[in-house]
Amino acid sequence: MKNNKNQSAVSNNGSRSRLAAKIYKYRGFYLMFLPVFIFAVIFFYLPMLGIRFAFTDYNGIKEATFVGLKHFQKMFSMPNFWSAFTNTLVISVVKLFLTTAAAVVVSIFLNEIINIHFKKVVQTIIYLPHFMSWVVTASVFSLIMAPTAQGLVNTFLVNTGVLTSDSMIYFLGDSKWWRFTYYLINIWKETGWQTVIFMATLAGINTELYEAAAIDGAGRWGKMRYITFPALQNTILTVIILNLAKVMNLFESAFVLQNDAVLDVSNVLETYIYYQTFNSGAIPNYGYTTAVGLFKSLVGCVLVLICNNLSKKIREGRGIV
């Protein structure tokens, strides 16, 4: 028994000295890593100490008072919280699939353009909306979608006989239409940017494959079906998986496009936190909003782990974390 302990101690000492030797050997790399490590500790890990406020009543003035799970009990009993939670998941996931699908389709179309100059011009034009701020985007679309003679979409629908001037649709002010409009605006804004990664994949497809397919009698659709789509498959999955991990982070786009009449379908967790903080007309209890934030992070963390597992299965052992 004593011998075993001694062996174990010797083995531990041995591995420690080996580790120390390795660190010494690669000291240059460790030295280079040090600023990153310090940065991560200061900006990512130390702020996590704030999680403790989720279990306290804290208004930023008096000492925080420990209240256990009180805020979580309140949170789970609030209909607005559950509505925001559901909206976050639904809006984010649908948006992700729609914008990805749109980006794939647009990429394939772009890839089919033969004139290189025209292709570049089109690419540049469709990238541009990505760089427009959400505030400006919301302002522009409020005007375009307005239920008045100044609203481009409604005027078009009236002029083409789809609607009458008395039945114009308030796209951004009607719960039935809000999400549809939101997805549409997101597709307009983000599709171009998302094509970058798909265009890179398409550029990497060996052109000999297309030549061989043409010799075998494949038309344009055949080439797409048997060469382009399979080549894009892995990239599509990677993009979806990587973005699925971020679905809980949704604020700006929803915040600038929502209004009082559509909160039941547009209020997401981050806007819920915002309203809890700034709508109370009193000094907010940061304990409650921290609890909501913590819950959101936990759900996000679970999604990351699920995506990591999916990624490992689909990408032959390559995870995302």
């Binding site: 607005n80 009082d260 009449a261 909160l263 309203y275």
Partner: peptide, 17 residues
């Protein structure tokens, strides 16, 4: 007010609209 007015204001504004 701290505890309820955020949700209450959201509800009132939605009902008004």
């Amino acid at each position: 007010m701290t505890e309820f007015n955020g949700d209450l204001t959201t509800l009132k504004n939605t009902l008004i609209a």
